Amino acid sequence: MAARSRAMVVVALAALPLAACTPPGDAPAAAVADFYTAVADGDGAAACADLTPAVVATVEEEAGSSCADALTTGELGDDLQDRAQGTTAPRVRVAGRQAQAVLGTDTVFLTRSGSGWLITAAGCTPRPERPYDCEVEA
């Protein structure tokens, strides 16, 4: 099943170029693709590497286990696996050092960190006139 999930993520996001002079939304989209590919592969360590340190700390505190275990096991791991299987090419909006990627099954928030992008919240569901409800956040 992990290979099938990975294939779906790769196919959905394969058209995203990673060249240095790409549109501003491509780099955040690539970070989201990396995250969900790692989730689909069951590679919690790689998925955690795509998160900000504050998010990693919160995930570990709430789960009572390592970030890698939390993202790949239990309720959170199951939820992220489900979301990984339904990803589509994201619609990305960039505003300065922040970005939002809306996929078919998720909304992900990111921040620029050095020369790349890290996830500040994932597994987010919109709620009318209220903040998003996110499974993974600081």
Rank of each mutant, 00 (worst) to 15 (best):
V92W: 07
S115T: 13
A47N: 05
T105C: 00
A31M: 10
G104W: 03
A3W: 14
G86S: 08
G86Q: 08
W117L: 04
T88I: 03
F35H: 14
S65L: 08
S66G: 13
A47D: 07
L51M: 11
R127I: 14
P23Y: 13
T125Q: 08
S66V: 10
R112I: 05
G96K: 06
E62N: 11
C124F: 07
E62P: 01
Q98W: 03
A70E: 05
C48W: 03
A31D: 11
T58M: 12
A33V: 02
A101M: 04
A3N: 14
V10E: 15
A95I: 02
W117F: 01
A49P: 01
P128N: 03
C48T: 11
P24I: 12
G64C: 10
A84E: 07
L18T: 15
V136Q: 06
D78H: 10
F35T: 11
P126K: 04
V9I: 12
G104I: 04
R112F: 02
A38V: 00
L110A: 08
V55F: 12
Y132G: 00
A29F: 06
V55L: 11
F35Y: 15
A121G: 03
T73D: 15
T125D: 10
V11A: 15
A122W: 00
L76C: 08
A89P: 02
E135T: 06
A121C: 01
G42D: 10
S113Y: 13
A31Y: 01
Y132W: 03
A63T: 05
F109T: 01
L110F: 01
V59P: 02
V102C: 04
D78T: 15
T22I: 09
E75C: 04
E137A: 09
C21I: 12
G42R: 08
M8W: 14
V10D: 15
T58C: 05
G42S: 10
Q98H: 10
A40L: 08
A47I: 04
A99V: 00
I119P: 05
L16R: 14
G104R: 02
A57P: 06
P17G: 14
T73C: 13
G42I: 04
V56G: 11
S66L: 09
T105G: 00
V11N: 15
L103Y: 09
L18V: 15
Q81F: 07
A29V: 08
R112G: 00
V56C: 11
G44C: 09
L71W: 06
P126W: 14
T37D: 15
A14H: 14
P126H: 09
A122P: 03
D34K: 11
T72I: 09
E129K: 02
L16N: 14
R83Q: 11
A38S: 14
S66P: 07
T73N: 14
E62G: 03
A40P: 06
L16M: 13
V108Y: 11
C124Y: 08
T120K: 08
D82S: 10
G64D: 10
A38I: 00
P131M: 06
T88K: 03
V94I: 01
V55N: 12
C124M: 06
P28C: 11
V108R: 07
D82A: 10
V102S: 12
D43K: 10
L118D: 09
